[in-house]
Amino acid sequence: MNSIISTRFLNLYYNEFHALKGITMDIQPNTVAALIGPSGCGKSTFLRLFNRMNDLIDGVKITGDVLVNGKDIYADVLDVVELRRTVGMVFQKPNPFPKSIFENVAYGMRVNGITDNQYIAEKVEESLRQAALWDEVKDKLKKSAFEISGGQQQRLCIARALAIEPKILLMDEPASALDPISSAKIEELIWELKKDYTIMIVTHNLQQAGRVSDTTAFFYLGELVEYGDTKEIFTQPKDKKTQNYITGRFG
């Protein structure tokens, strides 16, 4: 099979601190991969490899390969901006821009040089529909994005990421700051989106991981302890540590 994302013997250091240790992993297109593990084990760090967000932090050093669509994304010739357009990201806390709802979704298109306003308007609607938010905000597109609820803001951030048609969607605990209803909506959304996107999601909520993902990766102290089919990981984990974690004995 052709994996869309893969890492080979990947190490990442924050200065001296060895945060990711020799990770090799493949993810298939149009699947949802969940990253789980105790706090500080490196899930976010791993996720942020794929749109090179770690580049923004001083003192980060990386060895090994990270391939997206078969291309080494840490190669010198690669254009980071281009990469970030194909790899969308949704953050833990909703973080809309201080702009109108409409402009939030249009932002990615505008900064990437699209000027056709009619096209932008259509795409904004389409993305908001995809994020299951259109009906709730269609009458207040001009309103500030701060004026909607946290759950709506998070779906807005998803719509914002979708509007530039990425191939891959990285989600770092996208529902952790939300109430159960909003959280359920996001989960539904992930199911829908799977048709068109490959999704990596970090979550501390094991039920959620079980519900939405096809594969699950368990991280512990910077190592990838176990990676495989979600059903298998949850029912018959091979590693003792994984077992302890999913049965709630630590973490």
């Binding site: 967000m53 969308g88 990201m89 833990q92 821009f97 932002y107 900064v111 951030c157």
Partner: peptide, 20 residues
């Protein structure tokens, strides 16, 4: 996070500064 969100959408640093 707001700056990162902008960069994650393919904006460069100047776009992020001026627009966010």
């Amino acid at each position: 996070a707001m700056k990162e969100a902008s960069l994650a959408l393919g904006a460069n640093r100047w776009q992020t500064i001026s627009k966010v």
